[in-house]
Nucleic acid binder design. Sequence first.
DNA 1: AGTGGCATCCAAAGCGCTTTCAATTATGTA
DNA 2: TACATAATTGAAAGCGCTTTGGATGCCACT
Lengths: 341, 341
Amino acid sequence: MNLKQLSELLGLSQTTVSRALNGYPEVNEATRERVLQAVKETGYRPNKAAQRLATGKAGSIGLVMPTAPGHQSDVHFGEFLAGLGEEAVRHDFHFVIMPADPDDEVAALRRLAISGNVDALFVAYMRGHDPRLAMLKSLSMPYVVHGRSYGSEPDYPYLDIDNEGAFYDATRLLLQLGHTRFALMNGPMHLDFAIRRKNGVLSALAERGLTLEEGCTSHALMTDEQGLLAMEHFLQLPERPTAILCSSTVLALGAIRAVNQAGLRLGEDISLIAHDDVLPLLKPESFSVPLTTTRSSLRAAGLRIAQRLIGTVKHAGPFPDQELWKTELIVRASTGPVPQS
Amino acid sequence: MNLKQLSELLGLSQTTVSRALNGYPEVNEATRERVLQAVKETGYRPNKAAQRLATGKAGSIGLVMPTAPGHQSDVHFGEFLAGLGEEAVRHDFHFVIMPADPDDEVAALRRLAISGNVDALFVAYMRGHDPRLAMLKSLSMPYVVHGRSYGSEPDYPYLDIDNEGAFYDATRLLLQLGHTRFALMNGPMHLDFAIRRKNGVLSALAERGLTLEEGCTSHALMTDEQGLLAMEHFLQLPERPTAILCSSTVLALGAIRAVNQAGLRLGEDISLIAHDDVLPLLKPESFSVPLTTTRSSLRAAGLRIAQRLIGTVKHAGPFPDQELWKTELIVRASTGPVPQS
DNA sequence: AGTGGCATCCAAAGCGCTTTCAATTATGTA
DNA sequence: TACATAATTGAAAGCGCTTTGGATGCCACT
């Protein structure tokens, strides 16, 4: 059943039926009723592809999912998606997900944009000097970036959390507790948040004339294994750090395993603060020693970005172009005064 | 840049250019080269919506993502998606994800199918007597079901694991270790896998004239909190069970916390076997007491289903209509002989 | 009676691609 | 040389929808 058939059935033109369906004012109320009734009876659904071709609108937002054989799936991604979804479902939007090799992001994003399958783009996993920004700007399609790109002019729409501030505050807390030997367990070096978090740590340390010693920074995928490995490395340093800053509760999971295996006590021998994305699976308060964290909900960020994106597509704006969310520093038992040695 | 412009640029007809691009044999190799060259230079990309309208093919597979405000995002979903993605990226397919309230699955699935946005459907979270099956059959669109639907005629394409066998075997192992008081920590009661796993447990127990006692079965969302609650409940039963079967390592996470809090030792006072979907975050061998598990990779299942779906769309078949994967029973330290009391 | 305004409705022109059917030229065969 | 055949190419007809630019009829008002 298509528009033509439906309109013939009703003895109306396609024009009128189309207008009736799309809520245009110039159609008689009685006629509209008839049309709506017929739709109900016939189960007619407009063909989206045709609609899209005619209007250029798709009712969907696009994103690239980094994936590859052996590429470990990222819990953060799923959680973010849940946030997007929560908002999208309210507006009858859907997602088009383009899986792509992490090395192929720029091209994948472009393909997605040009495909005509999406009205707006969501971009994540931002890097320093991210090459996607230039491409996005040239695209004349709405987009919102999750995170920022260190080193690029901040003239693009983004939603980010104050990573630098979060890790600055966290470091300050540990300094106040008397710690002087710090280590940072970070995400991959090229990612924007990793850069900023490191800066936050360094600037807090610098105020006391301190710095991150040689070997006291790790950059790795945010998995629990990597957390374990990094922590094992830190623990066998001659001048073992007593204060650990950790970019994710996922890393912390492994890190704490290493601490336990070494027979050390978290919150006493070693203090640790992790960033908490509020993953349902890793609640810092549920760790055997509850974790002190900097917190900001990834899901909430997803929801907000979906709002902005969908709102822009529907011209329900205006929206702030740039948002920077503060994080909360929540003190639990994994931090304590520096041990007397 | 569209086909018309490109063809004018080349002094060819749209027909020929289109054929050159789509690999039809009746175009001169030299001409094809010229076209390809021009495409490279101009950056021309065919408009997907138009392509879809003309061919009826979309190059995408659709799925429904259950979501709602407050609905906790499901790690299993993300992991499965990663598997789908791994295969999809090889064939330049993408996903269309329709977020939907869990109570609205049938309608959401239908909307997705009729939207014309997808070539095939993937369906998960199967229930007993699942109403979606009838709808899918009437749809004349390829689909594969992950799981099965207890109580429905098994005449639909599916990929499932042998849930009943897995839990039968697990239960047998615990019986052999001398356990007689069992508890089952299961997923939501209406879900197919939950039904089958329970059956597996019951039939193994029945062989010894045993059964699941009153209060020794829990059905709940597979989150760590629910695991904690369920285990706390089991532990305060007058006849406390010594053998626990657990439908997910996520549940086990909470359950073990409860065991620890009660001052009991896993693998000694309490034996536990969990089903392991091979989630990157919850490796059974990384638990403080490594977990005995029944294992089957969710990601591998996603990959296989994507293969079947994409293969069917591309007429690269035939594929088996129904696959039932055996699980592995891997013994680690969380199971031990029944304690002498 | 003549005019303008309003409420409705429609024919037809796209949107950018694929594909059928036909035309043209090149090649081979008798 | 004449004719069948193969190799290339094109014109044009959709795919199902939206939207522009009129029609048409009816009414109120001069």
